[in-house]
Write a protein that binds this DNA or RNA. Structure first.
Length: 473
RNA sequence: GGCCCCGUCGUCUAACGGUCAGGACACCAGCCUCUCACGCUGGGUACAUGGGUUCGAAUCCCGUCGGGGUCACCA
């Protein structure tokens, strides 16, 4: 390929950014970044009922959160604007009229009601309905609303070589004279797509496999218009855990921003998504830089992939584990605020993160595991029954006294105290640490005992030990 | 139903005519160990199916079965 590739992501702003859209954007973006091309963002907002400014906002926010930037599009402009189809009507009008003039399209005055009736009649007979071409040779031009329809060739086939799927073909007989645009020249998908992809200099259209079938009429349009068609790459679909196509209605996890709320890191989500349909040998944990260095449509598969929440969680844990605590502060603080807990100062906040980051799958889990740092813990009765016993009283008392005198109140000193105590009592460290852990956290699970104690602070640690001691008869 | 695409462990996938079919998640066992987790070691599980082509097929061809997509004045 001589010239730089130009790719795009063209969502319709009818809701939040969903996972399928995010992956389509990611693949196109990666390809553009890898090969030094450009990445265009275009809003296909021609469905007036469903398109909303809030959705535009949500999509932009979602892409930015993921770190997918665009060279041209909303809020950044560019030489091919405007980037909202609703603002490009004159171009569609001019193009549609040219097609009519050239005999490649025609005005159709059939009403929606008439068409619906015909469709129903066909369905009743158990036959598939295709527009019959009623207005194909119509000469009069009644003063009525119309649509402009594509005039298909009488015969032949449309074929193309898909970058990921290979050779695909379809007979013109299996197509129909579809609607290009309405009376007000607001385009439908195929028409707007072709006009804009050409006008915006798109050389490679990457989209989900659900669009394979719309490629055929689009190719007819390229031909009629005398435009050189771009190359097409159709990506495999993403299915929900129930093997249905991932959809907003059926699958809450289709919402990109839900994962943010759950405390998933954008890089982890990107990593998970990029591996759905693409691979690079045996690599699993793949950084943003590596994705850009390695991504290629050659290694995009053809089979639909199923959403696997466990693997996302595992990946997120890998990223959590590898992150510097300061990188997690912001998103972790969001979790604390969501629970109505005070956000500690930076040092303590980072300390908690450091203590929990390798034992959390998400920042939400990290917050939940850290509850006892922020509020008086509820005591797990089973844990109390097993560890807060008369037998553990000597250990608890010695630790309580030792802690009371401890200075500085730091992990190394705490650890030394625990070791000395265990030795003095002739016990294993576990016999000392576990009762203390239950006294301090209410349960049997926490970071290492010395980190836990130091992070809790002397005052809180002593208070909780006193309370536990008081409860042991 | 017509048309289009697809079919390797439960899941994501590697393999681009010759491998004991590899890796990862999950699962099981063990090690490490103050708990949990991390980490490490080991384990089981897959080429949908029937026919070809070939010295040789998960890889190529055809049928069957199965899955998905699409059939709007949505995108």
């Amino acid at each position: 390929m001589e010239s730089k590739p130009h790719l795009r992501f063209a969502p319709s702003p009818t809701g939040y950014l969903h996972i399928g859209g995010a992956r389509t954007a990611l693949f196109n973006w990666l390809y553009a970044r890898r090969f030094g091309g450009s990445f265009v963002l275009r809003m296909e907002d021609t469905d007036r009922e469903r398109s909303t400014p809030e959705s535009v906002r949500a999509i932009l926010d979602g892409l930015r959160w993921l770190g997918i930037d665009w060279d041209e599009g909303p809020e950044v402009g560019g030489p091919h604007g405007p980037y909202f189809q609703s603002e490009r009507i004159p171009l569609y009008r001019e193009t549609a009229e040219r097609l009519v003039r050239d005999g490649h399209a025609y005005r159709c005055y059939c009403t929606k009601e008439e068409l619906d009736e015909r469709r129903k009649a066909f369905e009743k007979m158990g036959r598939p309905y295709k527009y019959e071409g009623t207005c194909r040779s119509r000469k009069d031009e009644p003063d009525r609303p119309f649509v402009i329809r594509l005039r298909l060739p009488d015969s032949g086939a449309v074929r193309f070589d898909d970058v990921v799927c290979g050779a695909i073909r379809k007979d013109v007989d299996d197509l129909y004279d579809e609607v290009l645009c309405r009376s007000d020249y607001v385009p439908l998908y195929d028409f707007g797509c072709v006009v804009d992809d050409h006008a915006m200099g798109i050389t490679l259209v990457g989209r989900g496999q659900e669009h394979i079938n719309s490629t055929f009429p689009q190719l007819v349009l390229y031909e009629y218009l005398g435009f050189a068609p771009p190359r097409f790459a159709h990506f495999p679909l993403i299915l929900g855990p129930d093997r249905e196509k991932l959809s907003k209605r059926l699958h809450p996890e289709a919402d990109v921003m839900l994962h943010r709320k759950n405390g998933v890191l954008p890089d982890a989500l990107l990593n998970f998504i990029v591996r759905l349909g693409w691979s690079h040998g045996n690599d699993e944990v793949i950084s943003r830089e590596q994705m850009i260095a390695w991504f290629d449509f050659d290694h995009v598969g053809t089979t639909s992939g199923v959403w696997n929440p466990e693997k996302l969680l595992w990946l997120n844990q890998q990223y959590l584990k590898a992150a510097r605590p300061e990188e997690l502060e912001g998103q972790f603080a969001e979790q604390l605020r969501a629970r109505g807990w005070p956000v500690p100062d930076g040092g303590r906040l980072r300390g908690i993160i450091r203590a929990q980051q390798e034992r959390s799958h998400t920042l939400a889990e990290m917050a939940d595991l850290s509850a006892y740092f922020f509020a008086e813990p509820a005591r797990d009765p089973k844990a109390a029954e097993k560890f807060l016993t008369a037998a553990s009283r000597p250990a608890l008392e010695r630790i309580r006294d030792g802690l009371g005198k401890l200075a500085p109140f730091e992990p190394a000193a705490v650890e030394a105290l625990f070791k000395a105590t265990a030795e003095a009592l002739g016990l294993g460290l576990g016999k000392v640490a576990q009762p203390v852990r239950v006294a301090l956290t209410g349960g049997t699970v926490s970071p290492p005992i010395h980190d836990l104690v130091a992070l809790l602070g002397k005052e809180t640690a002593l208070a909780r030990l006193d309370r536990a001691l008081a409860e042991i008869r």
